[in-house]
């Protein structure tokens, strides 16, 4: 790891003043689970590290009648175990509880999960060509890509967006509060937060380098919601694909309306599967309608040389997430 100067601000405003307008030389440190590994790989080589862990206000969780607000520094473990959040937003809490093992969940934060860099093994190997590190080509397109994106049309970089909290939050209509220089505050819907980068000056999200995500607000609308991930190992492992769904009604024979279906690990950003949502919108969720939604979810998929199987996994994950949300029997747990 390249050595750096360490800063420990105590307020968000102070933190922002320590950031720079361009990515690279200054990085924000929260749980560290992503940044420190990137630094050890020399993929990140900041000369300055701004720790957010001395800022008390980033760790609060407030659940109100109309919305819930979670500080960006809230740990994954707290999200997973929070009784009110579990009742209201199982899509979020189940996903949080599935991340890594207890160590990761005690360390990793909400903001870090949303802003983390991707897990592409070429991106993380400084000796492999990678567009995001200034290289001339993406090694994954013709290389080892069994975990990469399957929605690849128009993408030069085929990373798979890794955040599994993003899917639930997008499905639930959440937005992030962002603090910039001169106390400029803005709110961005998480549905519009993510970005497909193609070069070293871009990130997987639309946060500017001198902006800080301070909190995420989730509207409380009584939505039925759930998440499901396909993972090879039950111990700490990344999902191969992950899906979150949210809708009104949809249980006990009631039709589902306002359906949102969001996918992760399938494209450079979370994918809002509109065709899939349409396939079940205003319908009763059954094995058949959920299956149809799964099929619709992979419309337009253009898998790479080794990850065609992920198309099938998306179909299955969408179906199962819908069935979990609708309270239907989990036939796959036989």
């Amino acid at each position: 790891m390249k050595n750096f100067t360490y800063f420990r601000p105590t307020t968000p405003e102070q933190a922002v003043t320590l950031l720079e307008a361009r990515w690279g030389n200054t990085e924000m440190l929260a749980g560290g689970t992503d940044l420190l590994s990137l630094q050890k790989q020399y993929v990140a080589q900041p000369g300055r590290v701004v720790s957010l862990n001395g800022i008390a206000g980033l760790q609060t969780v407030v659940v109100g009648e109309r919305s819930a607000t979670l500080g960006a520094g809230v740990t994954l473990a707290r999200i997973a175990d929070h009784a009110d959040l579990r009742r209201l937003f199982p899509a979020l809490t189940a996903a949080a509880g599935d991340i890594g093992g207890p160590q990761i969940r005690n360390m990793g934060t909400l903001g870090g999960n949303l802003c983390q860099r991707n897990r592409c093994w070429y991106f993380r190997d400084e000796h492999s060509p990678c567009l995001l590190r200034g290289g001339q080509r993406c090694s994954a397109i013709e290389g080892e890509n069994k975990y990469h994106a399957i929605f690849t049309a128009n993408h030069r970089c085929v990373l798979a967006s890794p955040s599994t909290l993003a899917t639930g939050l997008i499905a639930l209509g959440a937005s992030a509060e962002i603090l910039g220089p001169q106390n400029r505050r803005r709110t961005v819907e998480l549905a519009k937060f993510f970005f497909a980068p193609t070069g070293p000056t871009e990130r997987e999200h639309t946060l500017a380098a001198n902006e800080l995500m301070t909190s995420v607000t989730i509207p409380v609308r009584g939505l039925t919601n759930a998440a499901y991930e396909v993972r090879q190992r039950q111990s700490s492992d990344w999902p191969i694909v992950q899906v979150a769904v949210a809708f009104s009604g949809g249980r006990n024979g009631e039709k589902a309306t306002g359906v949102k279906i969001v996918l992760s690990h399938v494209a450079p950003t979370p994918v809002i599967a509109e065709a899939a949502a349409r396939a079940v919108d205003n319908r009763i969720i059954t094995d058949a309608t959920a299956t149809a939604a799964g099929r619709a979810a992979v419309e337009g998929a253009k898998p790479l040389t080794q990850n065609g199987y992920k198309v099938r996994l998306v179909e299955v994950a969408v179906k199962r997430a819908l069935m979990i949300a609708a309270g239907l029997p989990r036939y796959w747990e036989a």
Partner: peptide
């Protein structure tokens, strides 16, 4: 990797071992 000649999973993350 065929092109770089490098092992892409020289780690314990994608070199998967059971828990």
């Amino acid at each position: 990797d065929r092109v770089t000649g490098r092992q892409v999973n020289a780690d314990m993350e994608f070199y998967k071992l059971a828990g």
